[in-house]
Design a protein around this nucleic acid. Structure first.
Lengths: 229, 229
DNA sequence: GATATCATAATTGTCGACAATATAGTTGAG
DNA sequence: CTCAACTATATTGTCGACAATTATGATATC
C-alpha cells in the first residue's frame, strides 16, 4: 500500500471530493477508457448523485489534466500520446531537480532518516518482487523528495496536477523495465547527496535520474511500437 | 495592451468563463483584497447570476491558486507572502529554463522574427516610458518563450496556474526596479541563443535571468520591509 | 447515390429551493 | 468577569427542473 498517501484526508467530507477520487482511480486504471466521452447524466446515475457535485468533480479532473472539457459539448478522458508523455518527463526532470535541491537544503535529519527507512524497505521488496517497487514504490520515493523540498507550491503542483498523470501513463503503458536495480542505486545516490546537504549535486543526480528514465521509456515505446505519435 | 493574449477566446461562451475572467482580474488588481473571504450569495448577486456557474468559476480560481477553499467553510483570496513569492520564482527559474531550451529547439524562424519585433518594440517603449515594459511587456516576452517551447503541458501550467499568480504578485507588490535596462539586455541574449538554436545556453541564460530577478526582488522586499515573512 | 436541410432528441448550462454544516450571539454557570 | 453550552443565523453543499445548445437522423433535392 502506498505509504506517502496516508495523510490524505480519507474521509472526504464532500460528495464532490469522494467522487473525484473515485473518478481519478477509474481513469488511471482504465475503467473509464482513455479518450472516451463522459456523460454527466450517466455518471451521476451510476454514483447515485446529482449533477451538481459531479460537475464540481469534473472541474477538478480537468484541472488535473485527466479530462478535457469543451463548452456545450462535454468532457472526454484525455488521450495518451507519446509526445505528451515526453513533455511530462521533461517537466519532471526540471521540477524534481529543483525539488531535490531544496530537499537537500530543507529536509530535517528526521526526514532523511525516514528516507533511509523507505529505501531499505524498497531494497527488500525488490529482492522478493519487483512489481511493487515499479508501480508505487518509485512514486513514493519521488513524492517524498518533493515534500522534502518544503516548497508548498511545488508540492501542490505535483499533488494536483502531475501525480495522477504520471500514475495514468505508468498504469496504462504498463512499463516494466530492467532499470529497477539501476534506478534503486540512483535513488541511493540522491539520498546521499541530500544527507550531505549538497543541493547542487542532488539536483544534478535527480535530473539525470529522470532523464535516464525518460530515455529508457522512449526506447521501449520505439521497440514495442505501442504508441505511434 | 497585452499582445500575447489576443488568441484568448474573447467571447467566452459560458457564464462561468466570463465570471472567472472577471474575478481573476478583480483579484489581481486587488479589487477583491488578498486574504478576504468570498461570499457566494453576495458575489452571485453582484454578477446577477446563480450560484451554480459562480461555483464553477471558483473551482477554476482554486485551480489557479488564486483562492483557497475549505469544505463547508468557504473560499478566501490567497494571502501574499514573501515565502510563496520566492517559491514561485524558484519554480519559474526551473521551468522557464526548460522552456527556453525547448524554444531554442522548436521555434521556427518566423517565431524568432516575431520575438525580434517584440524586443524592438520594447526597446522603444523603454525609452519613452518604462511602466509598460515593467508591467506587461516583460510578461509578454516570457510567455512567448514558453509558447515557443511547443511543450503543451508546460504552456498549460503557465496559462492556468502560474500566469495569474505572477501577475498578482507583480501588481500588488508593485515592483518597479532599476533592473529594466539590464533585464532588456538579458532578453536580447536569450533571443540570440534561441536564434542559434543553442538550447543549453538559452536555458542557462533564462534561469540566470529569473534568478537575478528573484534576488533583486528579495532585496527590495528586505529594504521596504513591506512583507514580513 | 451523395449531399444539404430541417426537425427531433439528447446533452450541457443555468436556475431556484432545500438540507447540512459552520459561524455568531446569547444565555447561564462557575 | 470568564468560559462553556446552547440557540439562532447565515453560508455552503446538494438536488431536481427548465433553458440553451449541440448532436442525431430523416427527408428532400441534385
Amino acid at each position: 500500500m502506498s505509504e506517502l498517501l496516508e495523510n490524505e484526508p480519507v474521509i472526504a467530507s464532500t460528495i464532490a471530493d469522494t467522487v473525484c477520487s473515485k473518478l481519478q482511480n477509474a481513469i488511471v486504471e482504465g475503467i473509464i477508457p482513455a479518450g472516451s466521452k463522459i456523460s454527466e447524466p450517466a455518471l451521476a446515475n451510476e454514483f447515485g448523485i446529482s449533477r451538481g457535485p459531479l460537475r464540481e468533480a469534473l472541474s477538478r479532473l480537468e484541472a488535473s489534466n485527466l479530462i478535457e472539457r469543451k463548452p456545450n459539448v462535454g468532457a472526454r478522458v484525455v488521450t495518451l500520446t507519446r509526445q505528451h508523455l515526453v513533455e511530462i518527463y521533461l517537466i519532471r526532470e526540471s521540477l524534481e531537480g529543483l525539488a531535490a535541491r531544496q530537499a537537500a537544503e530543507n529536509m530535517s535529519d528526521k526526514d532523511i532518516n525516514e528516507l533511509d527507512v523507505l529505501l531499505e524497505k524498497h531494497q527488500q521488496q525488490i529482492k522478493q518482487d519487483q512489481s511493487y517497487y515499479q508501480k508505487e514504490g518509485d512514486m513514493d520515493f519521488h513524492f517524498r523528495i518533493i515534500k522534502g523540498s518544503k516548497n508548498s507550491h511545488l508540492i501542490d503542483m505535483f499533488s494536483n496536477d502531475l501525480y495522477h498523470l504520471i500514475r495514468l501513463y505508468r498504469y496504462q503503458f504498463g512499463m516494466v523495465s530492467k532499470r529497477v536495480p539501476r534506478a534503486f542505486v540512483e535513488h541511493g545516490q540522491i539520498v546521499d547527496a541530500i544527507r550531505q546537504h549538497d543541493g547542487e549535486l542532488a539536483q544534478f543526480l535527480m535530473s539525470r535520474h529522470i532523464r535516464s528514465s525518460r530515455i529508457n521509456v522512449e526506447k521501449m515505446l520505439d521497440e514495442h511500437l505501442a504508441i505511434t505519435d
